[in-house]
Nucleic acid binder design. Structure first.
Lengths: 110, 110
DNA sequence: CGACCCTTTCACAGGGCGTTCACGCGCTCA
DNA sequence: TGAGCGCGTGAACGCCCTGTGAAAGGGTCG
């Protein structure tokens, strides 16, 4: 499974960032795989929770947000110039590997 | 079989650290080979146990941990500047020869 | 029979992990 | 522009997993 410089090997429970092994917790890895498998789609919190936690999301449960955050930090840490997890307010998260600064050399002054 | 300054000769049941013969017990050697053959991937405790002990891991059995520990000590003893067996909490162990002090991966500014 | 080594088990300690809470920002919409 | 909600983010906390030293059990060899 590939997404830009990110590679996931489900058979080995391994994630590689630019060839380097990432150290992820079980939950982190699980969330990453769930999102990456649905790359390009928006995955609702409910759906993501059901996939990873295997149950239905209770109101007020922030687990999903917290783990998306943890993942973002490790991904940002390993691949500073890429963005993978995109927020769609009110809908959920969407996985897609994108360079941080696509083209856009000139700052949009005003 | 090579991994940095570590060499394994299965034909002779020998392990050499920087050319010097390591004195390993049968189990120790067996664990080392099992991991080294799967270098780069994460080997679950269950899998490792099945490979070396030839059976299924009973809950609470710490044999694997203990022998990984013994191996680490001997490897550390023979090659202080290298790390070979890496822990992936919740997943298992991963064999990979790495210098002790690489560059230091980006301080977590947080 | 005794000494030694290997293997397994036990017990304790430490750290990592998962969950939850609290706070605050930013987006959205009226 | 103000209010409200959704989400980002840091931290606390208990539990589980792993690290680690020690002791028990068993086999081998002199």
């Amino acid at each position: 499974m590939r997404a830009g410089p990110l590679e996931i090997r489900p058979a080995q429970s391994l994630a590689l960032a630019a060839g380097r092994v990432m150290t992820l917790s079980v939950r982190e890895y699980s969330v990453l795989v769930a999102l990456a498998r649905r790359s390009g789609r928006i995955v609702a919190r409910e759906e993501l929770f059901a996939l990873v936690w295997d149950g239905s999301l209770r109101p007020g449960d922030r687990s999903v947000d917290v783990y998306v955050h943890k993942l973002r930090i490790k991904l940002e840490d390993a691949l500073p110039d890429w963005r993978f997890i995109h927020t769609h307010v009110g809908f959920g998260y969407r996985f897609s590997s994108e360079p941080s600064h696509p083209f856009h050399t000139r700052a949009t002054t005003r």
